[in-house]
């Protein structure tokens, strides 16, 4: 009996790995494998004009937490790195919360359309994203600028007296990030809500549950896998976002993505950039696994 179980389990494991192999092979070839190059680079010396010199150095790694003051050569905490990191985390969290708050109702709306119309609504939500991120970001800028249509409408209806200064503020970055990352929340949520058995709601109402109770006790727990997927897809890429903060924020405040980019570009410190991104990779992977574990704590499989 137990050997049968063992055999079934072994077969199960084989299938799991076999089915994952194409994806893993592709990733190993074009994403994870080449990262080893970056790992090696993090232990080298920066070249005078970018790139690296083949001489071992730990300065890339020490540079993450400590910086040598350029003027008096004393070592101190790298407070610039820390404030940039903290800003990115804060903004990513806010973006995730807001995309969820508006994305959940939207996904619910799409998933409760008649089956024929659902595909059309799904397309409608993705079509704006068929224009690339630069065009979209410029278009958003067009809408929120002082003489843009948003201010024009608000002025016209007498809601404000003077145009709101939105461009180049944190609000602008937040608006842009929510816009850009919205489909990453809506689509996974849709995929889960769509398979949701609406008879459960009927049962709930028959037991005289209120709408709020239904939402909290029935809908949210069942759609949890979608919430997890959506928030990962929004939060994590947001951390490394580069284009949106640069264009909508007016480039005055860096996010991690911009900071790492600076090291590989004008800053010409590839080892520091490499070490920073390796740190980011490890921190985010641990946080992600922890997050998924905690949320799935009540279930056996991961």
């Amino acid at each position: 009996m137990s050997s049968n179980e063992d055999r079934a389990r072994a077969a199960n494991t084989r299938t799991a790995w076999a089915l994952s192999t194409p994806a893993l092979a592709l990733l190993a070839l074009a994403a994870i494998g080449p990262l080893l190059i970056v790992l090696v680079y993090s232990f080298l010396t920066p070249g005078a004009h970018g790139n690296v010199e083949w001489a071992f150095s730990l300065e890339g790694w020490t540079g993450i937490v400590a910086t040598k003051d350029i003027f008096d050569d004393t070592w101190g905490l790298a407070d610039a790195n820390i404030s940039i990191f903290w800003r990115s985390v804060k903004l990513s969290l806010l973006t995730t919360v807001i995309t969820f708050a508006v994305g959940f109702p939207t996904a619910w709306f799409i998933a409760t359309r008649p089956p024929k119309a659902r595909a059309m609504w799904l397309f409608l939500i993705t079509i704006p994203f068929w224009t690339n991120v630069l065009i979209r970001t410029f278009a958003i800028n067009q809408v929120i600028r002082n003489e843009g249509i948003l201010n024009a409408i608000l002025l016209k209806f007498g809601l404000i007296d003077a145009p709101l200064q939105i461009t180049y503020t944190n609000t602008a970055v937040l608006i842009g990030m929510v816009y850009v990352y919205l489909p990453l929340m809506v689509l996974p949520l849709f995929a889960v809500i769509d398979r949701f058995d609406m008879r459960l709601l009927e049962a709930g109402y028959d037991l005289y549950a209120s709408r709020m109770q239904i939402l909290r006790r029935v809908i949210l727990p069942i759609t949890k896998p979608g919430i997890i997927a959506g928030s990962i897809l929004v939060f994590v890429p947001c951390l490394g976002a580069y284009v949106t903060p640069r264009i909508l924020g007016g480039g005055k405040l860096m996010m991690i993505g911009n900071f790492i980019e600076l090291q590989f570009g004008q800053g010409r410190n590839w080892p520091l950039g490499a070490a920073l991104s390796m740190t980011l990779l490890v921190v985010v992977t641990i946080a992600l696994l922890f997050y998924v574990r905690t949320l799935n704590g009540d279930r056996k499989d991961g």
Binding site: A48, T67, I70, A80, K252, M254, L262, Q266, G267, R268
Partner: peptide, 20 residues
């Protein structure tokens, strides 16, 4: 022209501090 060495170090540090 492209600065290097100490000059570049100063510039990067100042630039980072400016945008932190």
């Amino acid at each position: 022209l492209a600065c290097s060495g100490k000059a570049l170090e100063y510039q990067t540090a100042i630039w980072t501090e400016l945008q932190k």
